[in-house]
Design a protein around this nucleic acid. Sequence first.
DNA 1: TCTCCGGTTGACAGCGCTGTCAAACAGGGA
DNA 2: TCCCTGTTTGACAGCGCTGTCAACCGGAGA
Lengths: 344, 344
Amino acid sequence: MTATIYDVAALAGVSIKSVSRVLNGGPNVSPALEAKVKAAVEQLDYRPSLSARTLAGASSYLIAAFVDAELTLEHWRSGRGNDYLSRLEYGALVECRRSGHHLLVELVDYGSPSLEAHLLSLLRSLRPDGVLLTPPNSDDPRVLDVLERHGTPFVRLGAEAHLDRGMRVFMDDRQAAVDMTNHLIAAGHRRIGFISGPESYAASRARREGFRTAMADQGLTVDPSLVVEGDFTFEAGRISGGRLLGLKDRPTAIFASNDDMALGVLNAVTAAGLGVPRDVAVAGFDDTPSSMLSTPPLTTIRQPVTEMAAAATRLLLPASRGQTGQAEQVEYALVERLSTAVAP
Amino acid sequence: MTATIYDVAALAGVSIKSVSRVLNGGPNVSPALEAKVKAAVEQLDYRPSLSARTLAGASSYLIAAFVDAELTLEHWRSGRGNDYLSRLEYGALVECRRSGHHLLVELVDYGSPSLEAHLLSLLRSLRPDGVLLTPPNSDDPRVLDVLERHGTPFVRLGAEAHLDRGMRVFMDDRQAAVDMTNHLIAAGHRRIGFISGPESYAASRARREGFRTAMADQGLTVDPSLVVEGDFTFEAGRISGGRLLGLKDRPTAIFASNDDMALGVLNAVTAAGLGVPRDVAVAGFDDTPSSMLSTPPLTTIRQPVTEMAAAATRLLLPASRGQTGQAEQVEYALVERLSTAVAP
DNA sequence: TCTCCGGTTGACAGCGCTGTCAAACAGGGA
DNA sequence: TCCCTGTTTGACAGCGCTGTCAACCGGAGA
C-alpha cells in the first residue's frame, strides 16, 4: 500500500540501510548513492514511519508540552482565555516544524495524588525527546523528580527554584517591575498602589519584589495598605482596585501584576466615576491582546512568550540540545500606552 | 531498563499475547489470567510503548489538529490572540485524555503550493487516528482530497461546503444571526448596521444571510450602505464602525459578525463622542473572553467551541467512530449584556 | 465412550525502521 | 606486487507490540 523503506531500496537497487543513511544524513555517503536514493524516494513519494523510527531508534521526534488541566479549566470557566498558553504553543510549534519534530499537548492534573505515576506513564509510552514545563508548575519538585529519573530532557519556563535542574528560559520579572515602577515615578506618582499575583507563582513574587525595590531606591515608602494580593483575574483587579480607590488617601497610580487585573482596575476606576489616566494611572504586565484594545489602552510589560517557547524548544531538540543547568534569558519591553500618559 | 511486555509475561507466567489481551480488553479472558497479569503489570509499573503499538497495530492513539500557520501568525502579529483555537484545543484535549489518546498539534501552510505533499507526509509518518479541521480550512477541497485518499477519518468544524465529505460538527450561524437581529429589532431598532466577516468563512456568509432574513421577515428594508465587510479584526470594526456612525442617517444599532470587530465598534462609538447603548447599541458574535470585560460588556452569541471540539474528537475515536457524512449540531446561546440594553 | 464446539491461551510472524558489525572496495606506500 | 588504511555499503538482529492461527481444555450431546 504505502511505500516502505524496502520499496525504496528495491527501486534504487541498494540496501535499506543505505536508504536510511541518506535520509538521516549519515556519514560517508557517496553522491551517486544519494542521488539514486533520492530519486527513488521522490518517485515513490516515500515518508518514513514515525513509529518505526521511534521504536528502532533513539529519538521519537516528539516534544511534549505539559498543560495544567485544572488551571486551564478554571481559565475557561471564568471566561478569560489562556493567552500565555497559546503564545507558548505557537512558539513551540514553529520551532518543531523547522526541525521536523511534532508537538504533543498533554493535559496534566498537577493536583492529582497519582501525578507521578501519570507522568511516568506519559514518558514511557510516548518517549518524548523533550518536555516543556510552564509556570507555576515548572518549579514543582515532583515533576522534576520524575523527569530526571526518567532521563528526559526538559525546559522550565519562568522557573525560579531549583535553578540547577533541567534547563530554563526566563525573563527578569523583577527588573521589569522595577522599570515599570520607575516609569510611574517618573510620571510624578508618589502614592502607587500595587496588586500582586498569587504567591505560588515565582513571577508574582519577583514582580512585587521589583516594585518594592524601585520604590525604596527612589526613597519612597510603600504604604502597606497600598499593596494587595489578587489571583490574576479581572474580578480580583476590579475588587482590589475598588478597595484601593476607596482609601481616603487614594493612590494616584495602580500597578497590577498582570493585564487581566489591570483591566479590572480600569473597570473599577470608571465605576468610581474617575478617569484613567487623568485621576489614576494604571499599569499592567504581560501585554495580552486585550491590553491593547481596552479604553484607554494599557501600559504594560511585554513578555515575549512566543520567543521563550521557541528558545525552549530549541534547547530540547537533539540537534542543539542544551546541557542540564543551561539557562537562557529573554528580553522584555515596557510598552507605554495611554493608561499612564501624563496630561499634556 | 524499562519493563516490556516480555517482563510482564514472564513475571505473570503467561504469554505476551495474554498480556496484550488483558491490556486491550480482548475477549475471552479468564478472571484468573486477568488478575495475574494485572498484578504483574502493577508490580513492574509497566506501560506499553506507543510506537510499538502503533507499528504493530492499527491504531496510533493520536489525534491531529491542523492549525493554519499563516492565520495564527497573523493573529499574533496583530496582537489579538487566537481564542477560538485554544478553546478548541481544550475540548479536544479533555476528550483525548478520557480515551487514552494524545493530541498532536500541527502547523499547516494552507497557502503553500506543496500543501498536499505536506499533508500526505504528515498522515503517512504520523498515521493519526483522526484529524480535526478548523474553519476556514474545513472547506478546502485539497485537504479533503488528501484525507479521503489516505483514508484517515476527519471532522470538519463549522464546515459548510461538501456536506457529505468527512464528518461535521457545526452550529447554526444563520439562525443565531436571526436571533440577534430579532433581539435588536425587539429593542426598538429599525436602522441596524451590519459588519460582516470575510467571504472566505462559511460562518461569515451564514451570519450575514441570517441578518438579512430576519430584517426581511420583520418587513424592514436593509439600507445597502449599512452593510459593510470587515476582516474580523478590532481595527476593521473600529474603521467600519466609524464609517457607519459617520453616515448622515446613522444606525441606532450595529451588529458585528464577531466580537473583535464589535469591540472596535465600541471604540469608534466612544471616539465619536457617543455612548453605548444610549446612542448606539452594539452586538457581537462568539463570546470571546474580552467581550465580557469590555465597557460596556458586549451582547453576543456564545459559540460552544470547546463542546464542538469535544464532540468532534469523540467522532474520531475508534470506540465511537462516526460514519462519513455524519454531522452533529451544537446549540448556541444569545448572551445579553449591557451593550444592547434598553434605557430604563 | 467419543465427537464436537465454544471458550481460552500461546507460538510466531511480522510492523518499518536504526544500530552494529562485517564485507567490499579503493588508494597509498613498501 | 602485496599489505594496510580509510571509505563506502550491506546483512542482519532487534525495538515492543498486535494479528493470525493453531492448540488446548472442558462440558454438552450422540
